[in-house]
């Protein structure tokens, strides 16, 4: 089992972080390598993700579900398989205030990799994991901070929904642009 964990600070309140990340539809577009969202619900989804290391590459079908929401945290569980591999993971997100409107987010992911990917040397696998984690966190922060910009007045519920949708669309477009760039960068 590999444990990947880290912290980041985001300009959003804990509640905003939990609301944003608790709805998986917000999180899916931030996942590196996302090729297609086959099914999405606030608490679960099925994604097609292009992933791999070295010669072991392919399209993974990934199922993710939110298993728990607490006062200051979220728990997720997922399974993916593809290219003769399988990946099982359990992730958690613990959010705490970090002064002003900011929050500190501590995340942990316990990942079990099965199949040929498990045999990749850590020297090959770790840089790819780190690169993807950085991308993921960067986009998550971008999404969160975009959403948490202060507004002039308290909007009505319908307006919130409209803003939210608009944000998601902008985020998707941005991610799409980013991914094209990433691919080019990776290929170069």
């Amino acid at each position: 089992m590999r444990r990947v964990e880290g912290d980041f600070t985001v300009q959003a309140s804990p509640q905003q972080v939990l609301d944003f990340c608790g709805d998986l539809r917000n999180v899916f577009p931030t996942i590196p390598g996302l090729a297609e969202i086959k099914d999405e619900k606030p608490e679960s989804g099925v994604l097609l993700i292009n992933a791999g290391v070295s010669f072991i590459r392919g399209r993974f079908t990934v199922r993710i579900e939110r298993t728990e929401r607490t006062e200051n945290g979220l728990r997720f569980r997922g399974h993916g398989d593809g290219a003769g591999n399988a990946v099982d993971f359990e992730s958690s997100l613990d959010v705490a205030p970090s002064g002003g409107a900011a929050s500190n987010v501590h995340w942990v992911s316990d990942v079990r990799v099965h199949g040929p990917l498990a045999s990749m040397a850590a020297g090959l696998l770790n840089p790819v994991i780190n690169q993807n984690v950085d991308l993921f966190v960067g986009k998550l922060k971008e999404g969160l901070e975009g959403e948490s910009q202060p507004t002039a007045a308290t909007p009505e519920a319908g307006e919130v929904l409209s803003q939210h949708r608009s944000f998601i669309e902008r985020l998707r477009a941005a991610i799409s642009r980013l991914f094209r760039g990433d691919s080019a960068q990776l290929n170069s």
């Binding site: 089992m1 079990r112 990799v113 099965h114 199949g115 040929p116 498990a118 045999s119 040397a121 090959l124």
Partner: peptide, 14 residues
Amino acid sequence: YDEDGQLANSNFSS
């Protein structure tokens, strides 16, 4: 092998 029975080096890079 790791504790999950995964072979950690199934190619000539490792």
